[in-house]
Design a protein around this nucleic acid. Structure first.
Lengths: 192, 192
DNA sequence: ACCTGAACACCGTTCAAGT
DNA sequence: ACCTGAACACCGTTCAAGT
């Protein structure tokens, strides 16, 4: 990689981070190129697809996420590990607006630059679920696909500005659907 | 409304239904105008916004949905009524691809042509939840906003092609998060 | 009243021409 | 090797000109 190419690459990533923070995952690629003082064609050769750009933008976050999964897999309580994992996922989902929708689409498209990352999240989820199910901490009647779908749905919801204020509570409600004995499910039934 | 205007209006709705069925809620307005053999400007005067067009496209579905809510409000079991309502919502959500995402955005924007419909769904949900909570059938620690968020998240999930196959199961999982004594929650704990 | 073509400012894709 | 401007086919918005 030539010196000027290297400089452009990092410059693009820097301004892309700003642009995506401001306008979400649907920012205009042209806008990013303009901010980076680079021709649009240059941006598109470094990152031929929008997903390619996001794979680079998110790689730190994704590494931290999968690293966390590895730690949780050998933690004490399999149930608490699963809840922590869902929380970490939600934090990741909030890194940039529109990221979850993009991941959901990439998950179904092996040609996407984000496919491998989606698969990693999916399989980490499946492993944590399986362990929790083995200990009876998680519902037995769901699989990794279900968990991934629920986590993605949750991530999408907290991404919506109107739902964001209730994000913490939505996480609690969602985890209570997954665990067999949810810690926050101590609802007092009315007498009638 | 003049005769030719009336003809254009219904012609637009007819072809819009086809186009949206094929390409989802993000179809090009130009494409719809072309199919209707109508100038783009004509389409945009009949329906100044995309949401305006969808308000017309969905009005039958939305009427059926709110009508169903009214019936469910006076039904026997408040818990079963809530589950039926969620199922009806999911069926509605599947009417066209991308509709739920549009409704979620419209819900936060009073200027949207779909805002009133969103509010109607929201308040119907809140009423059914409140009744179920009064009888102890639904969790006490959630409100109408939470239910609407969960329903929208569920609707969005089943809208994703990769999650659609598990739609029925996702509905069951989601309702089990809402009900205090879920009928499908008879999970046998493992012995260890 | 209602319709329409055209101009406008955007978008992402592609490629021949530059250094 | 790498960059770039320009042409291309799209999009939604707007409006003067038609009937």
């Amino acid at each position: 990689m030539r010196a000027d190419a290297k400089k452009n690459y990092s410059q693009i990533l820097t301004v892309a981070r700003e642009a995506v923070t401001e306008h979400g995952a649907d920012v205009s690629m042209r806008d990013i190129a303009r901010r980076a003082d680079v021709g649009l064609a240059t941006l598109l050769r470094h990152f031929p697809t929008r997903e390619g750009l996001f794979e680079a933008l998110l790689c730190t976050n994704l590494d931290a996420l999968t690293q966390k999964a590895a730690e949780l897999e050998i933690s004490n309580s399999s149930g608490e590990a699963l809840v922590s994992w869902v929380r970490d996922w939600v934090v990741f989902a909030q890194s940039y607006r529109g990221v979850v929708a993009m991941m959901a689409a990439a998950h179904a498209n092996p040609a996407s630059a984000l496919y491998a990352s989606c698969a990693a999240v999916h399989s980490a989820s499946a492993r944590l679920l399986l362990r929790a199910q083995g200990e009876g901490a998680a519902r037995a009647d769901m699989n990794g696909d279900d968990l991934f779908a629920l986590m993605t749905a949750l991530g999408w919801a907290v991404d919506q500005p109107s739902f964001a204020p209730r994000a913490d509570h939505l996480v609690r409600l969602m985890t209570s659907a997954i665990l067999t004995d949810p810690p926050n499910n101590d609802v007092k039934k009315s007498k009638c």
